[in-house]
Design a protein around this nucleic acid. Structure first.
Lengths: 341, 341
DNA sequence: CCGCTGATTGAATCCGAATGCAAAGGCCGA
DNA sequence: TCGGCCTTTGCATTCGGATTCAATCAGCGG
């Protein structure tokens, strides 16, 4: 059926039909001019492009997505965007390099995830990168819907799903070994992150396991929310408790470690690393600042982001690739918050 | 024309037609069940919803967007996501509360903006929040396309466009007045941000204007890129130059100010605030850490984000609202990096 | 000058949901 | 029981671009 000319009454944006009419060609011709490698003569292309310029036409990605079943959008789910901007930043940049757009989902708590699920299904994203904890049931939904998914720093042993992560256990082992063997610490405190963070759990559990293995008995435990203030509060609670104060503090992330260092040095008047050693995890920018020079495990964020994005893209372009797990080793950074013997 | 049943051969996600068939009703009925306030009987709704559950149907937001001309997506353009995660975080959270999805565009440099423009037009976003500098020609395109736009912290005097900003000039005035009147400084250094940042320009210009007005002649100038290291480098250059060293340093943002403080204290062995006062701008979290307790102007990020989002939503729901400029005052925070008399 | 081949072009159809309109159904009072 | 009115429902069409298939065209050898 031949379509009526769009009436432009309501000043709507030009469509491919408008361009076609203006150029005196068919709508299909216009469409083809935007498809790389399509069969279009030079003359036709120039003619169409002139009209495109004149009308300011831009193809409607929504309409295109409807028919091609490719939205060129990827959902990125992060928790704590405010604490981990680097991850989002790296992912976003790499996706847009590949012509993919980022639909952002920022969670207050990882457990809020359910809320965003419906949204994700509805938006027909081509894939998902999730830096958040997913239930097996949720993972299964991705399979059912054939939506490629890559987990960032949350691998699961019990479910075959693609993931990119930093080896938390290895990192903590290195930290503990350094604190015990190189520094000679025997009394420890371990400060975890929020209870719903699997990463925090992995880190603290790994650290404690290693400590036990090395024969360490004295381990005070506390937890914060990954934030600076919560690190300060945790260390205050620990130092105020009647138990023997730790000589080394292991924190689930850098931000809390920084809080611990500040609280120790500036409020509790305890020297770091003279009296107490402090280590974190992440390799955040702030940890490298001169005031801290924090000992930590540096996660190779760039490599991890690159891996996550390329794994995702492969699975988008190539349905049915089997899940793949890639693990990166963190790099120990011996800073000035530990005193080596 | 009556549509054939979809064949499910290629295991595609169920559509409203599938649900309709499964429930033995028409497609329109299904559609109406997802429209709040539509005319649907209780019986019909229950029947449809049962099929929806069984099939795991989710409305296709892409198709919906095509017909309703509402994508429920808003583009958020930020530069330096890694330095200003709070802004994105606040915006994103507030938008999703309102059922709007965030299409993220992160720029390396504000001047990269042109690249993302096409993308934005193509994705039929309902509106845009831009924390980046737009040329008048670009602003005009938003008008032509009737896409509501709110600028974040980049108002323009020469173009009628909605914006939410912090009063940079007033903030710098307060900082300068404090440094001159309350601390008695007479020799200054001003460290700007990247050359393509208008905010940086506004801040440094305002500071210098105020300094001149108060009769200050000695103003060393330098610039960085808003990053910690660039602050360190800038202050080193300034202190190494043969001119009289400044007794007060004004930085275009907190991150550089932190770098300046660290470099002064830890490498140049200059006491802050004993020998030199340092002030920043933003009110960033890190600035409040005990090690710094930076004097700065705190931008009311939450109020600004709320204002930006609500202004944008109003303009989306209500075509033709005139542009509106809202300016928020920053709050002076007198930290321990300035020495009051 | 004719017929054949490969390159272009256009008509028609499709993607999946929303909606105006008309038909059908339900309920009420007379 | 019937007419009238309000509520529900279904039909057909629409959004804007991609794609299939058939038609057209240009170019070339014979």
């Amino acid at each position: 059926m031949v379509r009526e000319t769009s009436h432009q009454k309501t000043k709507r944006l030009p469509t491919s039909y408008d361009v076609a009419q203006h150029a005196g060609v068919s709508q299909s011709a216009v469409s083809r001019c935007f498809k790389p490698g399509a069969s279009v003569s030079r003359k036709m292309r120039e003619r169409v492009m002139r009209s495109v310029e004149e009308l300011g036409y831009r193809p409607n990605a929504i309409a295109r997505g409807l028919i091609t079943r490719r939205s060129n959008m990827v959902a990125v789910i992060v928790s704590n965007l405010r604490y981990y901007p680097e991850v989002l930043s790296e992912l976003s940049r790499r996706l847009s390099e590949r012509g993919i757009h980022v639909l952002l989902f920022d969670l207050d708590h990882e457990s809020d995830l359910a809320k965003v699920f419906d949204q994700i299904w509805q938006y027909q994203v081509d894939g998902v990168v999730a830096a958040a904890y997913l239930e097996p049931a949720q993972l299964r939904q991705f399979e059912e819907r054939h939506i490629p998914l890559v987990l960032y720093n949350r691998s699961r042993k019990d479910f075959a799903v693609s993931s990119v992560s930093c080896d938390q256990a290895q990192g903590e082992r290195e930290l503990v070994d350094m604190l015990v063997n190189d520094c000679g610490h025997r009394t420890f405190a371990v400060i975890g992150g929020p209870p719903d963070s699997v990463v925090s759990l992995q880190r603290t559990e790994s650290a404690i396991r290693r400590l036990r293995k090395l024969g360490i008995k004295q381990i005070a435990r506390d937890a914060g929310d990954y934030g600076y203030d919560s690190g300060r509060q945790a260390i205050r609670r620990i130092m105020e408790s009647r138990k023997r104060p730790p000589s080394a503090v292991i924190c689930a992330n850098d931000m809390m470690a920084i809080g611990v260092v500040d609280e120790l040095r500036l409020h509790l008047d305890i020297d770091v690393p003279g009296d107490v050693s402090v280590v974190g995890f992440d390799g955040s920018r702030a940890g490298q600042w001169l005031s801290y020079d924090l000992a930590t495990i540096e996660q190779p964020v760039e490599s991890m982001a690159e891996a996550a994005v390329s794994m995702l893209m492969q699975r988008i372009d190539n349905e049915g690739l089997p899940p793949e797990r890639r693990t990166f080793s963190g790099v120990l950074r011996t800073g000035s918050t530990v005193r080596l013997k």
